[in-house]
């Protein structure tokens, strides 16, 4: 693991603290001073301890543009998720099980592991696809209804709408 500079450490610590504090406030559902004090101390200790681990994103995540894109991504994702479910429902309920499974691969332009993970999770939750593995920047996707085995076309079908937004966030 490479040595972190002080600035990086501080950056990570602050993101982590803010993030964990949000989680804490969601747990406790209150702004009562005792809860907030206890939460601040606890989250500070935990985020101090987990500085070497925490690499989700840089401090730029707090810029308003990115937050806007995060919300945008959320809606894109939600729409895909609902689509996915009706798709699954259709397949499951049709007596003849209309499936044509297979595994396809494609490449992504995303760089950080965390972004790749978000993309993979989104793919898993969208129509008929399940990410099996990531090696380097190649995704291997199990597709319940293979339309094409060509990587570029598969990429267009499966991941493009997500990746566009994710590139803007990370």
């Amino acid at each position: 693991m490479k040595q972190l500079t002080l600035k990086e450490k501080a950056e990570r610590f602050i993101i982590n603290w803010v993030f964990l504090m949000l989680v804490w406030l969601m747990f406790t559902k209150t702004f009562f001073w005792q809860e907030v004090v206890v939460g601040a101390v606890t989250t500070m200790l935990i985020s101090l301890a987990s500085v070497p681990l925490f690499t989700c994103c840089t401090i730029k995540i707090f810029s308003p543009v990115r937050i806007f894109w995060i919300f945008y991504y959320f809606w894109v994702f939600l729409a895909a998720l609902i689509m996915a479910n009706f798709d699954v429902a259709r397949r499951v309920l049709t007596p003849s099980l209309p499936i044509n499974p297979g595994i396809v691969k494609f490449k992504t332009k995303l760089k950080t592991p965390f972004a790749k993970m978000v993309l993979a999770n989104s793919i898993t939750l969208t129509p008929g696809t399940l990410s099996v593995d990531i090696i380097g920047d190649t995704f291997y996707i199990h597709w319940i209804d293979v339309k094409t085995t060509d990587p570029d076309k598969a990429f267009k079908d499966i991941a493009e709408p997500f990746e566009k937004v994710l590139l803007k966030i990370f």
């Binding site: 996915a84 499951v92 499936i99 499974p101 008929g128 399940l130 199990h142």
Partner: peptide
């Protein structure tokens, strides 16, 4: 549950199971 029951192999079961139960 139905998807897990009906689908023919593990990957398809995972597809049905994950998506449907997550949204559900």
């Amino acid at each position: 549950g139905l998807g897990i029951y009906r689908m023919p192999d593990t990957y398809n079961r995972l597809q049905a199971g994950t998506k449907a139960t997550t949204l559900g």
